[in-house]
Computed example of a mutant assay.
Amino acid sequence: MRCYRLFYLLLLMPLTALYGCNDVGQDETYVIRLGHQLDINHPVHKGLVFLKEELERNSEGKMSIVIYPSSQVGDEREVLELIQIGSMGMTKVSASALETFVPEMKVFSLPYLFNDQAHYWKTLNGEVGKALLAAGEQYRFKGLGYFDAGSRSFYTTKKPVQSPDDLKGQKIRVMNSQTAVSMVNTMGGSATPVSWGELYTSLQQGVVDGAENNLPSFYFSKHYEVSQYLILDEHTSIPDVIIVGTHVWDQLSPTQQTWLQDAMQAATDYQKEMWAESTEKSLEIVKEAGVQVIAADKEQFQQSVAPIYEGLRGTELEKLVQEIKGLGEKM
């Protein structure tokens, strides 16, 4: 089914229609196609719309982006594969979804890595963040920058989670990320990968007992309709990565690359503000809808995942963790 879907997309979207080409005329617009999985009301989508508008402004209409939201062209992995074969130009993807392609991205899925938002953005905007963006180029992914995706917390359908012990026996949906699987299992839950598009039904029908995500996604997905309990343990802060395929980036002139990179920086600043507003509003709405919101004892959760960090000893990932932790200590 998945292969059929990819084949069908390729038939519908020939390469020259997908991302433009070098021989566009002087008065023509170079168009980049971007696919992602989120709702059009989501702050990440709004950030991408701002990116499109900034690129058009910077280039005086000579470059543009066409956005396909709501999984119109596939889930995160499918869109990444389309970029690799040259059939899609750009995407927004969680850093966790990049683990399979860019192993260094696993670091963002480690629980309680950052001290606070200042530490988070110092890492993303600094040498560590830039190096991780560049690490994808050998896999045909050029990282343009990061969008805020907040902190992820657990939500459940049957009983509240107030400590890691409460996760025992509960099937918790996670992204297709080995690091996320390891985290939930180490805490005592039973990690169960389920695609984003199938999660509402899975929660409703009891295929899984809960999931974990950020507040805006919990709200916009309407998962709060079938999940009575939200525990604000904020175990991970996994950024979204804005990617352009190297097949597109390498076609662009230095001036075009600058237009796109400048638009990305402006969109990051805009999206951070949108995210903060959306997070606050989402929490208010789910509370009004009757969701029981529980303040977590984060120290208990931090202690429960200590074995994950112990398992990193002597690895390259441990060095990266130490570098990130060192940035926090200097603040």
Results as ranks from 00 to 15, higher is better:
residue 261 Q to R: 10
residue 148 D to F: 03
residue 223 H to S: 12
residue 54 E to V: 05
residue 187 M to S: 02
residue 58 N to L: 11
residue 208 V to M: 06
residue 154 F to M: 01
residue 188 G to V: 03
residue 71 S to V: 04
residue 255 T to H: 14
residue 261 Q to G: 00
residue 40 I to F: 10
residue 182 S to T: 13
residue 140 R to C: 07
residue 86 G to K: 01
residue 84 Q to T: 05
residue 163 S to M: 05
residue 250 D to T: 05
residue 154 F to H: 00
residue 109 S to N: 03
residue 307 P to G: 11
residue 5 R to S: 11
residue 69 P to E: 10
residue 245 G to S: 01
residue 81 E to P: 02
residue 161 V to L: 07
residue 240 D to Y: 13
residue 35 G to H: 10
residue 41 N to H: 14
residue 66 V to D: 11
residue 130 K to F: 00
residue 173 R to M: 02
residue 191 A to I: 03
residue 89 G to M: 01
residue 41 N to G: 11
residue 2 R to G: 15
residue 107 V to I: 02
residue 119 H to E: 12
residue 20 G to A: 09
residue 185 N to L: 06
residue 300 Q to W: 14
residue 223 H to W: 12
residue 265 Q to D: 13
residue 91 T to G: 07
residue 194 V to A: 06
residue 311 G to Y: 08
residue 111 P to N: 04
residue 188 G to L: 05
residue 128 V to K: 15
residue 46 K to L: 10
residue 128 V to W: 13
residue 302 Q to G: 12
residue 171 K to H: 06
residue 47 G to Y: 07
residue 24 V to P: 02
residue 190 S to M: 06
residue 322 Q to S: 10
residue 81 E to W: 04
residue 99 E to H: 01
residue 273 E to I: 05
residue 309 Y to A: 00
residue 222 K to I: 08
residue 201 T to L: 12
residue 276 A to S: 14
residue 305 V to S: 09
residue 137 E to F: 06
residue 278 S to V: 04
residue 171 K to V: 00
residue 81 E to H: 07
residue 68 Y to E: 14
residue 69 P to S: 03
residue 129 G to H: 10
residue 112 Y to L: 04
residue 79 V to Y: 09
residue 185 N to V: 03
residue 76 E to I: 08
residue 221 S to G: 13
residue 272 K to V: 00
residue 224 Y to L: 05
residue 103 P to F: 10
residue 79 V to Q: 15
residue 128 V to Y: 15
residue 211 A to Q: 05
residue 35 G to W: 08
residue 36 H to L: 03
residue 140 R to I: 06
residue 286 V to M: 00
residue 310 E to M: 03
residue 202 S to H: 02
residue 47 G to W: 07
residue 41 N to E: 15
residue 175 M to Y: 10
residue 65 I to F: 02
residue 53 E to N: 14
residue 126 G to C: 03
residue 294 I to A: 09
residue 157 T to L: 09
residue 38 L to R: 09
residue 237 S to C: 05
residue 193 P to N: 13
residue 87 S to K: 07
residue 73 V to Y: 15
residue 312 L to R: 12
residue 139 Y to P: 01
residue 216 P to I: 06
residue 167 L to S: 09
residue 182 S to Y: 10
residue 239 P to L: 04
residue 257 Q to S: 01
residue 265 Q to W: 15
residue 30 Y to V: 00
residue 80 L to N: 08
residue 243 I to W: 11
residue 11 L to E: 03
residue 286 V to L: 07
residue 189 G to P: 01
residue 184 V to N: 00
residue 166 D to K: 15
residue 77 R to D: 04
residue 292 Q to Y: 12
residue 77 R to M: 10
residue 22 N to Q: 13
residue 294 I to S: 06
residue 237 S to L: 02
residue 188 G to E: 02
residue 17 A to H: 02
residue 182 S to P: 11
residue 36 H to D: 04
residue 162 Q to N: 13
residue 80 L to Y: 04
residue 131 A to G: 07
residue 53 E to Y: 14
residue 11 L to R: 09
residue 195 S to N: 15
residue 133 L to E: 08
residue 198 E to G: 10
